[in-house]
Computed example of a mutant assay.
Amino acid sequence: MMTYKMKEDGNLYPELQLSNKAVHDSPLGKFGKQSLTFLQENNPIKFQELQMNGTLMEKMHEIDQVAKDKVIEMIKELEKSNPIPKTEDIYLRTQHKNQLKAQAEEIVILEYVHQIN
């Protein structure tokens, strides 16, 4: 149910909420924030629809969690095809792991974060 509040100018304004559930009032993660920004800039109608339904933050938290899980899964897959070098050089191993993480995040952003239905 939509509620309205009268402002100083005498007009009624809808009281919009970001989510119907208190659980989704927690801060968004990296992928949730990127998805929210992408939605605002590229599909403002869908953004308003989700906002008015009170499901915006629920959807963003869902996308954030799915993206985090996919990144972890993808890093494991990438490590199988590109194993960590067998060396004592910690910097080389760290660089390799960071590259795998960056690859996984890039793929997840393109496939999940920017594909809001």
Rank of each mutant, 00 (worst) to 15 (best):
N11T: 15
I72N: 07
S26D: 10
E111H: 10
Q103P: 00
L50I: 09
I109M: 08
D89R: 11
T87W: 01
F31P: 02
N20S: 12
E73N: 03
N98V: 13
I75M: 15
S26N: 13
N43K: 08
K101I: 15
H24P: 00
T55G: 01
F38I: 01
Q34H: 03
D89F: 08
P44E: 09
G54E: 08
L16M: 10
L78P: 00
H96I: 07
I63E: 03
L56N: 02
Y91S: 14
K86I: 12
E8D: 11
K101Q: 12
I116T: 12
V23T: 15
M1F: 08
L110D: 06
Q48V: 13
M60V: 12
V108M: 06
S35C: 12
M57V: 06
T37Y: 01
F38G: 01
H114E: 09
N11D: 12
L16E: 09
M6V: 15
Y112N: 12
S81A: 06
T87S: 11
M2W: 07
K68D: 08
R93D: 07
G32T: 09
N82V: 10
K46N: 08
E77P: 00
E79K: 09
T87Q: 03
L110Q: 11
M52D: 13
H96Q: 06
Q65V: 11
I109E: 05
L110S: 06
E15R: 14
E105I: 06
L50S: 00
F31M: 03
I75L: 08
L18P: 00
V23S: 09
E111D: 14
N11V: 15
V71H: 04
K7S: 11
Q95W: 06
E73S: 08
G54L: 11
P44H: 06
L16K: 09
L28I: 04
I75T: 10
I84L: 09
T3P: 01
S35D: 02
E73I: 04
I84M: 12
Y112A: 11
N98W: 03
I84Q: 05
K68R: 13
Q99D: 13
